[in-house]
Design a protein around this nucleic acid. Sequence first.
RNA 1: CGGGGUGUAGCACAGUCCGGUAGUGUACCUGGUUUGGGACCAGGGGGUCGUAGGUUCGAAUCCUGCCACCCCGACCA
Length: 491
Amino acid sequence: MPKAIPSRAEDYSLWYNELVKKAGLAENSPVRGCMIIKPYGFSIWEKMQQQLDIMFKNTGHENAYFPLFIPKSYISKEADHVEGFAKECAVVTHYRLKNDKNGKGLVVDPDAKLEEELIVRPTSETVIWDTYKDWIQSYRDLPLLINQWANVVRWEMRTRLFLRTAEFLWQEGHTAHATQAEAVSETKQMLDVYADFAEKYMALPVIKGVKSESERFAGAVDTYCIEALMQDGKALQAGTSHFLGQNFAKAFNVKFTNKEGKEDLVWGTSWGVSTRLMGALIMAHSDDNGLVLPPNLAPIQVVIIPIYKEEEQLEEIAQKVDKIRNSLISKGISVKFDCRDTHKPGWKFAEYELKGVPLRIAIGPKDLDSGTLEIARRDTKEKKSYPMDGIEDKIQSLLTKIQSNIYNKAQHFKEQNTYQADTYAEFKALLENKGGFVYAHWDGTRETENKIKEETKATIRCIPLGGNEESGKCMVTGNPSTKRVLFAKAY
RNA sequence: CGGGGUGUAGCACAGUCCGGUAGUGUACCUGGUUUGGGACCAGGGGGUCGUAGGUUCGAAUCCUGCCACCCCGACCA
């Protein structure tokens, strides 16, 4: 049997790239740093979108859409924001092409230069806050709770399918509030929504925390994040939620009249997750045989493969399958009956394994005789025969089991790869030999953080939320610290 | 963007050093036998050798620029 993808042990990063391509998720495009998301990959993203969208609406948000292009002057209105994004912006300077007189083909028409250049949005705070200025006059207009599903462009130096691409798909929530407390609570609420989504749907355990000053979003007062651990021991930031304070309100002059009749600046938040979640999903669960998808996000939850010799046999199988399929569909389970006669069963087994379909059912002559069928689990590779009667309930309970098994496995891996370091030497040794999450004391300064980053390549992933107060000494400087922070090498 | 590597059929590669009619495996098409873990036999189609120039009677092969991808850095969600 030809091996479809290299193993994780051989070359983790090659494994990832090959898996993404061979499983039909995405491929590189003719445009530098941009990917083509293929139908199977996109259908997983759609499942993520659908669920997140429900969760956003349930927390009172509405969808809207703002322009792809942002006038250059907008970007520079918030000082930190410009600094953060200026280096990676794509810029539109002209609006017309023409045929060159000297036969050089299509050229940019120099007469069609834009008065003001347009930036292809790297994120939409500026254009959205410029709009909010007109939408908000009174406390009665608040809170304003908006989300947008969009593509953004950040001109990255080094790109990788899903993990870092020049163009990526995401959602960005942008909310405006009358009080600081309300904005902070919105920021935290959305962080919880992300953590819930990651754990319940992606089967991905995450750590919630707040970023250190140097890792903060450009223009935010506080950046909250969820951090997940990948199988190679590196951390991946899976979502961020920013408390913007009044920074953008100041920059775009967004004021409202409060209940007391006084004018005040609006408080803001923004929050987002991107197609990077696809990368997290792939790297967290998959194995050397291919993808392993949590049932809650699998586009196909059950695939049924007939095994037959003659047409009549297939017909007989198809009749049985039809019944099972209909009742599964009525339970909300997605089923594919792959009765193509252009591929052999063995080929199909390997194919759906590569694509991470949680349950595979094989049904052939043996089963017709005995009234059974064979179910194979993708997560454990376990194969077992079950009576055909009442199989729908069995399938439903297996899907639930798989979902929690995948989560538990990831949770166990995270626990096994989470350490505490008390000295800098210990810290370095852990990162060198094992990777993973390392909790250690830090004195809270940017200098120490930078020194650690330079010397070990590890960064502070977050200062974890929750009451794990513990007085100690910074492992580098020995200065006092009140709590351990989370370090890791990161994507 | 700096260092290293690689671009030859859909995919994986050989051929490049030493210039002389573009190959192998797989995938694809046709026919037959097969079908409970990526089938077998026979026949067939497909490549301006990443791209743009240059050297040469002649370039996949030598020289130069550019582009893309991979690994290691810097940057980053």
